[in-house]
Design a binder for these strands. Structure first.
Lengths: 175, 175
DNA sequence: AGTATTGGCGATTATTCTTCGGCAGAAAGG
DNA sequence: CCTTTCTGCCGAAGAATAATCGCCAATACT
């Protein structure tokens, strides 16, 4: 039977140690989450149930936050991608500002350090729609200005990768 | 029998008309792609095979580009998120610059209109790793400078949404 | 009107997911 | 050094889901 002291320790979702197997699984799932456990197991060198168990743990610990379909913005009628920097007078995160997150055009919102307070990633149907979004932003009290960066071409857009570079090359690049 | 003129039209993967059912399915899949077709059908008002067929079409047409697991950057050892603006002297897209996409830290790269040429979204293990990345960028010929925006808090980060706002409110916000 | 095409449904089969018991290896304790 | 305990993997079985088929209704085209 467990001691009392052990009963007291909270079950917080901490870092449950991610080994090489987990890394491979995560990398594979980030690339394509629609493959079967059997295939995953074959790829990483484990049986299907073993992979299943690891994925279950990774899900529960929050390392895997969910699985989502990647949609084509242009096909959905939103061909215009833009990053909007917002300069707020006071402090960026106002209740008022958070309300613009309701628009499906908004994909990201971060508070940042730099010459801007808040950064948005938005995907709109047209320049007019972007203008309408900016009008929403400017209507927020405390916003002193915005600077928009419209994407001309997207060369890469992918989810969080499992890999980490631990040996950055001194010279430009290894290849 | 079809006319000759019809035989000539190419089978290009064009916009295959996205109706309200498709929108609902896409919205549901963007939110959570791990639910069964039966549940999806129940949500949108179709049978499971009907949903299956629609998803198959949406996949083939490229509207659904894939399904990916959303990973937690911090849990993977990459707690630092930054947006890096790059000013390039000549033209941004050089072969040399594309090579940094090999690093798993790089999640996005766009060429943008604005006072920067190229915009990166990178997630690194530490400020030192970000510095190493910037060193790689500065080593690219033609790069005259960078400006980095480090994310302090992320209030929203989600995939491309299926919805489109067609009636932007004149006044601040509806709610 | 008649005909062809499209898309949905119910039912069936194939595949995958999920769980279970047993076992081997490592870690903790005597 | 041996025993005990625990963790994690495997093969196999059962449950759930995916994927396919034929039929039918609604629409478009001749």
């Amino acid at each position: 039977m467990a001691k009392n002291t052990e009963d007291l320790r909270q079950r917080r979702p901490q870092q449950p140690v991610i080994d090489a197997f987990d890394r491979k699984i995560l990398a594979a799932l980030a690339a394509d989450s629609s493959q079967s456990y059997a295939r995953l197991g074959e790829a990483v060198g484990l049986s299907a149930p073993a992979v299943h168990e690891r994925v279950r743990r990774l899900r529960q610990s929050g390392t895997i936050k969910g699985v989502h379909a990647a949609l084509d913005g242009a096909a959905l009628g939103k061909p215009l991608l833009a990053f909007v920097h917002v300069e707020a007078a006071g402090w960026g995160k106002s209740e008022r500002l958070m309300q613009v997150l309701q628009f499906p055009e908004v994909e990201e919102m971060h508070s940042v350090a730099g010459d801007a307070s808040v950064l948005f990633k938005v995907r709109t149907a047209s320049p007019q729609a972007l203008e309408a979004f900016l009008a929403q932003i400017h209507a927020v009290p405390g916003v002193s200005g915005t600077r928009s960066y419209i994407a001309l071409s997207t060369y890469l857009e992918r989810p969080v990768q499992a890999g980490v570079t631990d040996n950055w090359p001194d010279m430009p690049l290894p290849e």
